[in-house]
């Protein structure tokens, strides 16, 4: 598969994805985020060759811009039904429902972003650096939540881009793709 973004071309190795978690690894600029966007169907570039997976129902957790500055967390939740109070508690976000994104820490925003992404009913979940801004305890909290989600949706696909050794250790049995 070859993706062309303006004058920049990225050639990807052949990828075979199966249900469960796949970790995408590789140096910066290798095209990991571009791959997620291509799989999400929101890439503004040219894709030559077949995508490894193509589903209508996909959900992306981007690295940034995954919230609206003037909506509270509860309003975000209304846009993505399916977020439970229990899930908020599980990710340590309880009591923050009426806060705006700028009132949250980077770590809280990242966990909230993960929560929203995983709350969208989808077959393919795409996570871009889901733990990069979290300290060890919070990262483990997020990994546990992700693990439960994967177990609850055995037929879904999860593709996560990461540089985080903690994530690689937490999901040591996951398939990996090196770019």
């Amino acid at each position: 598969m070859i993706i062309t973004l303006g004058s920049h071309t990225i050639t990807y190795p052949e990828m075979v994805l199966s249900p469960g978690l796949t970790l995408v690894l590789g140096p910066s600029g290798a095209g990991k985020t571009t791959l997620l966007r291509a799989l999400h169907g929101t890439l503004e570039g040219r894709v030559d060759g077949p995508l490894p997976l193509e589903f209508d129902h996909t959900s992306l957790m981007p690295q940034q811009h995954s919230w609206v500055p003037y909506l509270t967390l509860s309003e975000h939740m209304k846009l993505t039904p399916g977020i439970s109070e229990q899930a908020l508690d599980q990710l340590g976000l309880e009591g923050l429902e009426n806060k705006f994104p700028h009132q949250l820490s980077v770590g809280q925003l990242q966990r909230f972003s993960l929560l929203i992404s995983l709350s969208v009913p989808a077959v393919l979940y795409l996570l871009d650096e889901p733990s990069s801004a979290l300290d060890t305890d919070l990262a483990e909290q997020s990994f546990r939540y992700l693990e439960q989600h994967i177990q609850a949706h055995p037929n879904s696909y999860y593709v996560a881009v990461t540089h985080d050794d903690r994530m690689m250790r937490a999901f040591s049995s996951a398939k990996t793709i090196e770019l």
Binding site: H40, T42, L60, H65, S66, V68, Y70, T80, S117, V120
Partner: peptide
């Protein structure tokens, strides 16, 4: 509105 636009885009 870029962030809001992206957010809605992600929600498909």
């Amino acid at each position: 509105e870029r962030e809001a636009r992206l957010y809605l885009h992600h929600l498909k």
